[in-house]
């Protein structure tokens, strides 16, 4: 090992800056290829990617791929209400005559939006607080941040999210706010644990003695080493956020009718169980498929990073 390092060092000494950069780029490309290889070795990860891709494409192109785009809104057609699954309506029609398949595909939009927006709102502040608390470990900054985190983690996130959402005006955005408000502590605690461990690594001390600024140490030395656990958690969290979002709309605190949402469709449809089972069962299955897709994808990402660390 030492010999190799010496050779590499000697090589590096004879290279121009441009050549070094080129080598770095190549090695990055190679490690990306290796990561993809590790990811794709598990067929379930590929199933996950394919499911997620399909769901995203369906959601984006909903107005063009659905058979009855008008049914996504406040459409009523009582003459065709509660039709069981048929060729014309593969998943049947609901209590006021709207095509269930169409509404499911449009409903994917709010579910995905929820997952993306909540994580976008939650990860930056959560990670930043974790970094700060980890870097200033043992000081009052650490104490304040981590004790507040503990308070939020002392109750299951669903309850507080429900409470906040119930106090606000019920709609998709307030639902997202409520979930976000409860979700950041998980990232803070994750990054805090990593940060405390990294704080004592030699490369951090090395940066310190060469006079690097606090900001440089936090963002250029510690942060890059926490990225893979954060990405892993994010990819698994999308599924959880979608589930919590569907629970909020199930109890009427998320997306408001006539806007379609999977949770609301299950809730409304469950009133017509068991005779018109398709109104509730197909949206329920759609939630399971979406969540399963993101979970498989998340597991693949986790395995990819886990293998890399060995």
């Amino acid at each position: 090992m030492a010999e190799q390092a010496a050779i590499r060092h000697e090589l590096a000494a004879n290279l121009t800056v441009q050549q070094i950069k080129q080598l770095e780029r190549r090695s990055r490309r190679e490690s990306l290829g290796r990561a993809w290889y590790k990811f794709s070795r598990n067929p379930l990860s590929i199933v996950g990617v394919a499911t997620v891709a399909l769901v995203v494409l369906l959601a984006i192109f909903a107005p063009w791929v659905t058979p009855y785009p008008k049914h996504a809104g406040a459409f009523t057609d009582f003459a065709h209400a509660k039709i069981p699954p048929s060729l014309e309506h593969p998943f049947g029609t609901d209590q006021i005559g709207r095509d269930v398949l169409t509404r499911i595909i449009f409903g994917l939009r709010s579910s995905l939006l929820m997952g993306v927006v909540v994580l976008a709102l939650v990860v930056p502040p959560g990670v930043l607080l974790g970094l700060l608390a980890g870097y200033y470990q043992g000081t009052w900054i650490d104490t304040v941040i981590m004790r507040v985190t503990d308070i939020f983690l002392s109750v299951p996130p669903l309850i507080l999210a429900l409470a906040v959402a119930s106090v606000l005006k019920p709609n998709l955005w307030n639902g997202m706010m409520a979930v976000s408000l409860m979700w950041w502590p998980w990232y803070t605690r994750l990054v805090y644990g990593l940060g405390v461990a990294l704080r004592n690594e030699y490369f951090v001390s090395a940066a310190e003695v060469t006079g690097a600024s606090t900001a440089h140490i936090i963002f250029r030395e510690i942060l890059p080493n926490t990225i893979s656990p954060i990405l892993t958690k994010m990819s698994l969290d999308v599924a959880w956020v979608i589930i919590i979002g569907s629970m909020l709309s199930f109890v009427g605190l998320g997306v408001q009718p006539p806007e379609p949402s999977l949770g609301t469709m299950v809730a409304d449809g469950s009133r017509y169980l068991p005779d018109q089972w398709w109104i509730a069962v197909f949206p329920a299955l759609a939630i399971v498929v979406v969540v399963l897709g993101f979970n498989l994808l998340g597991d693949g990402v986790r395995d990819m990073f886990a293998a890399e660390e060995i």
């Binding site: 589930i243 199930f250 469950s270 169980l273 329920a284 399971v288 979970n295």
Partner: peptide
């Protein structure tokens, strides 16, 4: 796997059915 990805309220509906 199925148990982890399915929310409890969906299980509830399936069991009722």
């Amino acid at each position: 796997y199925a148990g982890v990805v399915t929310p409890s309220y969906i299980f509830a509906i399936l069991f009722v059915l």
